[in-house]
Computed example of a mutant assay.
Amino acid sequence: MIKVMATTVGETGADFLAFTMNLGLDITSYIMGGLLLIALLNQFRLKCYVPLSYWLVVVLISIVGTLITDRLVDNFGVSLVTTNIVFILGLLAVFVFWYFSEKTLAMHSINTVKRELFYWVAILFTFALGTSTGDYLAETSGLDYAQSALVFGSTIAIITIGYYYFKMNAVLAFWSAYILTRPFGASIGDLLSQPTKNGGFGYGTIGTSMLFISIIISLVIYLSFKQKKRI
């Protein structure tokens, strides 16, 4: 739930800063990139899973991943077909190097700085790829926001069924679902934030971002208390 909402915040948050606040894609990218670097440095110094630190990085990397795709398409004129190909090849390259280096891609095996570095680079590519894929589908398929969300949500549901009932490989299921949550969350974000004339609910980027950030904070606080009780 937090991951889906983080992807939504990545979509609406980037739009809010770049367009609503008129910071532009370049300045927004520099600001969010700097914040992400600080959050990552803090994350790498930790020796165990800390919900607040981990999910802060996820939210920030979601925004940065969105901005990377938006800048390539809007500022440099790169087509969405090209960005999809580049990000797919980039993600595959990360997985290949990661596997040949560590012999595993399992999330629960991330217990060294090197593996965590591979993990976050892969996450960045999944967000950029998810943004590119979602935008491509929205612009070429003729589907509205609700239909796009249904397509991606149904695909995630199929993966879930495959894992629980047909013994789908756990690592493949995890990363497939992780990639798809990005366009799924983006579609939900667009559905809630876009004007009604464009097929959305008209809540705006501010309202949608604040709603989901509030829910994310509440869930992270819950996870933090739950972790302390286990300790």
Score class of each variant (00 low, 15 high):
Met5Glu: 02
Thr7Pro: 03
Gly13Tyr: 14
Ala14Tyr: 13
Leu17Asn: 13
Thr20Asp: 13
Gly24Tyr: 05
Leu25Lys: 14
Thr28Gly: 13
Met32Tyr: 06
Gly33Trp: 11
Gly34Glu: 10
Ile38Met: 10
Leu40Arg: 08
Leu41Gly: 15
Tyr54Trp: 01
Leu56Asn: 15
Ser62Asn: 10
Gly65Pro: 07
Leu67Thr: 10
Thr69Asp: 15
Asp74Glu: 15
Asn75Leu: 15
Gly77Trp: 08
Ser79Cys: 08
Asn84Gln: 08
Gly90Asn: 11
Leu91Gln: 07
Trp98Pro: 00
Tyr99Glu: 10
Tyr99Gly: 06
Tyr99Trp: 11
Lys103Met: 08
Thr112Pro: 05
Arg115Ser: 04
Ala122Val: 04
Ile123Lys: 02
Thr126Ser: 03
Phe127Thr: 14
Ala128His: 13
Leu129Ser: 08
Asp135Pro: 06
Leu137Lys: 00
Ala138Asp: 07
Thr140Ile: 09
Gly142Val: 02
Ser148His: 00
Ser148Leu: 06
Tyr164Met: 04
Tyr165Ala: 08
Met168Tyr: 02
Ala173Tyr: 00
Leu180Asn: 02
Ala186Thr: 04
Ser187Ile: 02
Ser187Lys: 03
Gly189Glu: 04
Leu191Gln: 06
Thr196His: 09
Lys197Asp: 09
Gly200Asn: 06
Gly204Pro: 06
Gly207His: 09
Ser209His: 09
Leu211His: 05
Leu211Lys: 06
Phe212Gln: 01
Phe212Ala: 07
Ile217Arg: 01
Ser218Met: 13
Gln227Thr: 08
Gln227His: 11
Arg230Pro: 04
